[in-house]
Each structure stands twice: as structure tokens, then as C-alpha cells.
């Protein structure tokens, strides 16, 4: 194993982590402000990818596709919030889990009904095609570099939004004390719709970005959804900072686990046996990480103690 390969794998872990952050930021925001578990977040991610694929396919422009993904996801988010989600804020988590589980079924099959059963096509934009040469002879795909960059920009923007702006103040106030902020004359239902749409837009954006290098198909949201839940639980639910740290942690654990565990087992098992055992363990690695974190810190790394 060369140092070069190891560095490239670190980059891969970072890129995977940043992508997970885009997905989990919205989820943790929604939980922090409204106290809602939203299983349908993965469906919004899928809607973003399908909207991007449909518009980019029709116009030939990836940027227009991204815009469409943001718009469609935010619109779907707002619509769902207005019709369904707002009835769930004062319910227990059980009802929220079930209602949003039902939304997954509706969104998935609805998308299949609209777009058919075959995957859609979405390609990376020409400008970002192919690999880039980095210092020290590292070769890395441009598009993945772009994902890392954009993800970091979005993270910074989100931190600034929460820390510096008026909406951010309200969001933080809403996290701290839901009744009080209403009493202070803030239109709480508008704020909730806005936050939900913002979270949805982030998920849709992630879906479109990732859709360019993955398969745009029905059901693409659920595996990512589970990963995003792992992330926000490790980070501490409601904490954007926690989600960021946990995203990178999960991204690195998964990538390096897949890479290193088969090699590790290869030192004392035969090649194909090591492959099978190593890969089996690698697929469980992030869940083991999550269980370990929760056992030592039951509210996650940055979660408020209850």
C-alpha cells in the first residue's frame, strides 16, 4: 500500500463525508427546530435527483438541472410541511416515524409512476469531467473535488446563516424554546415551513450533485437516509456542528474500512476468505461506530444532555 493510495482514500472519505453532510444538515436542522423525525428526507433527495435529471436531460444544462432540483425539493418540502408534517409536531416520535414512512411509499411509487421503472440519465457537466492533477502526483476526479468544495461552502454558509442572520436567530430561538418565540410575535408556522423547505432544498441539492455520478433511480434515497440518520445521531441530534464532524467521521470510517479491513484480514487469512470477512465487517463498521458512540455518549458527540 503506497502513501499515494492512502491519501487518495482519505480524499474519498472526505468527499463521501461532505456529501453525507449535505444530506444530514437538513435532517438535523428539522429535528432541532421542530423536534420532528423525518424518514421522508430520503425521498426529497430522490426528488432532487429526478428533477435534475429531467431538466438537465431536456435542456442539456447541468446548472439548470441543479436549479430545478433545488426548486422541486423545496417545493415538495413546503407542500409536505403544509399538508402533513405540521400536524405531526405535537405528536410523539412513533406517529412521526409512521407518517413519514407512509410518505416514503407515496413518493417512491409516485415517482415510479411518473418516470417509469428504469433509471434516468444525469451526467457530470463538461467543465468538471475527468481527473485533475494535484500536487505530489495525486490524480483525482474534478467532479469529486467540486463536491468537496461545494459541500464546504454550503457548510460555511449554513453556519453563517444560523450565527449571523435574523432567520438564524429565530431558528436558534425556536430550538431553545418553542413557546417563547411564538409569544415574541414571530410567525412560528411560517418559520417552520421555511426551515422545512430549506432542509428539503439541501437534500434535493445533494441528490442532484450525487445523481451525476450515481444511479438516478427509485429507492436511491433510503440507503442514504439511513446513513444520514447514523450521522446525525453520532453528531448529536439538532447540532449542525455535530452533523459536520460526524459526517466526516462516518465518511472516513466507511471508506477506510472498505479499503483496510480486507487487507488487515489478508495478513492471516487466504485472499478470498479475507475479502469476504473484511467486506462483511466493513459493511457493519459505521453501525458499530454509532453503537459505540452512543454507549459512551448517549446523546451523541455534540448533543445536549437530556
Amino acid at each position: 500500500m503506497s502513501a499515494l493510495l492512502f491519501i487518495e482514500q482519505l480524499l474519498n472519505g472526505l468527499q463521501f463525508g461532505v456529501m453525507l453532510f449535505l444530506m444530514s444538515a437538513g435532517l438535523t436542522l428539522i429535528f432541532g427546530v421542530m423536534g420532528l423525525i423525518n424518514l421522508a428526507h430520503g425521498s426529497i433527495y430522490m426528488i432532487g435527483a429526478f428533477a435534475a435529471a429531467a431538466v438537465a436531460g431536456a435542456t442539456g444544462s447541468f446548472v439548470l438541472g441543479l436549479g430545478a432540483a433545488l426548486a422541486a425539493a423545496a417545493a415538495a418540502g413546503a407542500l409536505v410541511e403544509l399538508t402533513v408534517i405540521r400536524r405531526l409536531y405535537d405528536r410523539d416520535h412513533l406517529d412521526q416515524v409512521l407518517a413519514t414512512f407512509a410518505l416514503i411509499l407515496i413518493f417512491s411509487e409516485g415517482t415510479r409512476w411518473l418516470f417509469g421503472s428504469f433509471p434516468l440519465f444525469l451526467d457530470v457537466p463538461d467543465a468538471l469531467r475527468g481527473p485533475a492533477e494535484l500536487p505530489f502526483g495525486i490524480v483525482y476526479p474534478r467532479y469529486r473535488l467540486a463536491i468537496i468544495l461545494i459541500g464546504l461552502v454550503v457548510a460555511a454558509g449554513l453556519f453563517a446563516l444560523i450565527a449571523k442572520t435574523r432567520i438564524g436567530v429565530r431558528i436558534r430561538a425556536g430550538e431553545a424554546d418553542r413557546e417563547m418565540i411564538g409569544a415574541l410575535g414571530v410567525d412560528i408556522s411560517k418559520l417552520y415551513t421555511l426551515v422545512f423547505a430549506l432542509g428539503a432544498a439541501l437534500a434535493g441539492f445533494a441528490g442532484a450533485m450525487v445523481g451525476a455520478i450515481q444511479s438516478v433511480e427509485v429507492g436511491m434515497g433510503e440507503p442514504v437516509l439511513i446513513l444520514a440518520f447514523v450521522v446525525i445521531v453520532i453528531g448529536g441530534i439538532g447540532s449542525i456542528r455535530g452533523a459536520f464532524v460526524a459526517s466526516i467521521l462516518v465518511g472516513l470510517t466507511d471508506t477506510l474500512g472498505r479499503f483496510l479491513l480486507p487487507i488487515l484480514f489478508g495478513t492471516f487469512l487466504d485472499a478470498s476468505g479475507a475479502n469476504i470477512v473484511g467486506t462483511a465487517l466493513a459493511s457493519m463498521a459505521i453501525y458499530i461506530l454509532m453503537a459505540a458512540v452512543l454507549i459512551f455518549r448517549p446523546t451523541g458527540l455534540f448533543g445536549a444532555a437530556t
Binding site: 429535528f31 423525525i37 416520535h93 416515524v97 439511513i226 440518520f229 447514523v230 445521531v233 441530534i237 457493519m284 453501525y287 458499530i288 454509532m290 453503537a291 452512543l294 454507549i295 448517549p298 446523546t299 451523541g300 448533543g303 437530556t306
Partner: peptide, 17 residues
């Protein structure tokens, strides 16, 4: 050792393992 949403998610994690 965990409660609420954390409990939901840690049981999910064990199931996934």
C-alpha cells in the same frame, strides 16, 4: 442507556448490523 430518538436509531443500527 439512550432514550427517545437515540433509542430508535441505536436499535436500527443493531438491526442493520
Amino acid at each position: 442507556r439512550t432514550t427517545g430518538v437515540y433509542f430508535i436509531m441505536i436499535t436500527l443500527a443493531f438491526g442493520q448490523m
